[in-house]
Design a protein around this nucleic acid. Structure first.
Lengths: 349, 349
DNA sequence: ACCATTTTTTGGAGCGCTCCAAGAATTTTA
DNA sequence: TAAAATTCTTGGAGCGCTCCAAAAAATGGT
């Protein structure tokens, strides 16, 4: 690859002049400019290499998005929630004229990814991993962490997941439901895990603050109706797991209400209900979480704990772009009641 | 920001040793290593700056995605098609451990964006703009252009849009439809444009090869049934335009079949139909284009010209990643018949 | 204790560029 | 036509790093 210097030599001018031809052409005499351009063409020089400029100027003009946990960026893109989040981020990037780098990192490479990412700031997906935070801090880059409060010195944005979960349960108990099932998130690879009441392996900690908080909200909401979460089957599935619905219906046939951690999970349930001819909300009520655009279009339209996902992504990007004093933002949620929930009635299956 | 040299000075060792401490720690004596690390900590040195390494090594380890036309990346993310495309690209990026840079470029900045993008290759969204191609070629980066054949020397991937369009029309004429409306794409800002038959402003060129080819397919399909596209109202709307459905129903009430350029447009129609209580497919049949995941979940599930969008994105990424001899790939499409189309019957509106 | 090995550390070279102060060339003014 | 003003061009400095050949230090064997 030819360089500025090569072109300069060929055209009989200096490096600096060639640079000017490409960056401030008005500064160089038309005749000379033409000679330089001809030389550049002849050598197949395609303009100054951004690498050189970068080292000189130091701005990448890009922000990085790192998926939560060990997720890949394709997994983020696959989920309705992830897509809206990235959409929100990209909105802010559009406004700022910034590139959005979706940074990949497997379990072992994510630290190196953060170390090497060509970005001016980071958005970290929710995650319990303090190591990632430390990695970003090391680079002195502005960053924000999602769905996980990391203290007053660190930018974070989360929703009020607990209240949302409580609201979902209240809605259902208010309708008269007494038999629940909870669809929680499995954050490790593998098939759905069913935790039946009283089982030894049962645990309430899903591992990510986001999950735990919602689970805790469910617990609280149930307690308010004199129900114990200890008696509620909890099924952990990987987001998007297509068998989730089948497992729920097979293992917890008595449930009249199903609580989920995301619209995506709820969609899985709804799909399976259609497949089995189970009437929603006649036989069973289903509540989603997130209020993504998809939730409005399911059959039937879904009751869900809605948050402003796009707004959250956008705010996150703005926070790293603006790089102001650290803030911890908690965004409100709102229960959107649609047609996937109703009073329980005698079940006919 | 401290540099390797600063740390070296503080620790009483050379630049090179500090570099080794961070990149090949096994090469330096534990005691020394520790001293260097202490110095780094004291100075707040967060590891070697990627900019320096980059200049030295020359690989960005990223590929860029540039939206078609004057679209912003948020607009890509908003459309069902765009999302699946990016998902496909990200799949290949995950496999290759590469970063996916969504490169922004407004009308005036897209050339500079290409010039400066910190990527090893490019995926160009469909576009008629030869200038973009030239810009990428200048940088000597491997690239692929989508939905637009740019000759034998240039990587391209497109679907067989014409055949898809023909199949859609055949399906509808086979069902007995004689009254059509076509929802085409407006590629400039502004409200829907209605081209009624015989109107002076009428034109069949939407501007992007992708649109023109489909329009041409519709024309051919209609001709096969002895119908002329010249008698079919064509409405151009910006993708996602919420008023599209209203315009179609208001301006072309006699149409029993609506052809669209994308699932997204068809969704708009379907939404409006629900709003107005128009029965699909009883009163009117609607055909989408692309076969995105969303098309399967509409009410009613949509008949659509399906392509493997995810596969296309993935292939595109592979082509730039692998950088082999230029190929022009044409992907097949398949008409997926679902419930949004049926034989026309007397219209009751 | 000396020499041969092996392990560790060093510092020059170079990646490609932009900035900028200073020098050279050209144009304007008197 | 010479001096002054203006326009254009130059090349050094420096951005921060990694590689590598060579020097230095440590280790081992006799």
């Amino acid at each position: 690859m030819p360089t500025l210097a090569d072109v300069g030599k060929a055209a009989g001018v200096s490096r600096g002049t060639v640079s000017n031809v490409f960056n401030r052409p008005e500064l160089v005499r038309p005749e000379l400019r033409e000679r330089v351009e001809a030389a550049a063409r002849a050598l197949g020089f395609g303009g100054p290499d951004p690498k050189g400029r970068l080292l000189r100027d130091g701005k990448f003009n890009a922000i990085g998005f790192m998926p939560p946990g060990a997720y890949a960026i394709s997994e983020v893109m696959r989920s309705p929630y992830g897509r809206e989040l990235v959409l929100g981020v990209s909105l802010a990037c559009d406004e700022a004229g910034t590139t959005l780098s979706l940074v990949n990192g497997t379990d072992n490479t994510r630290f190196a990814s953060i170390r090497d990412a060509l970005v001016d700031g980071f958005i970290l997906g929710h995650s319990a991993d303090i190591g990632l935070i430390v990695s970003v801090q090391r680079r002195r880059l502005p960053f924000v962490i999602l769905e996980s409060d990391a203290g007053p010195d660190i930018n974070s944005i989360k929703i009020d997941g607990r209240s949302g979960a409580v609201a979902a349960v209240r809605h259902l108990t208010g309708l008269g439901h007494r038999h629940f099932a909870i669809l929680s998130v499995r954050r490790t690879p593998g098939p759905p895990i069913v935790h039946m009441p009283g089982q030894a392996t049962r645990r309430l900690l899903a591992g990510f603050p986001l999950d735990d908080e919602r689970l805790d909200g469910f617990k609280q909401g149930l307690a308010e109706a004199n129900l114990s979460i200890d008696n509620v089957p909890i099924i952990e599935t990987i987001p998007g797991e297509p068998s989730a619905g089948a497992v729920v219906f097979d293992r917890v046939p008595e449930a009249t209400a199903i609580l989920t951690m995301s619209d995506w999970q709820a969609i899985t349930i709804l799909d399976e209900a259609v497949r089995r001819g189970i009437d929603v909300p006649g036989h069973v009520s289903v509540v989603g979480f997130d209020g993504t655009a998809e939730s409005a279009r399911t059959t039937p339209p879904m009751t869900t704990v809605a948050q402003d996902v796009i707004g959250k992504g956008r705010l996150a990007a703005r926070m790293v772009l603006d790089n102001e004093a650290p803030r911890q933002v908690v965004l409100p949620v709102e229960l959107v009641v649609r047609a996937s929930t109703a009073a329980p009635r005698t079940k006919i299956r």
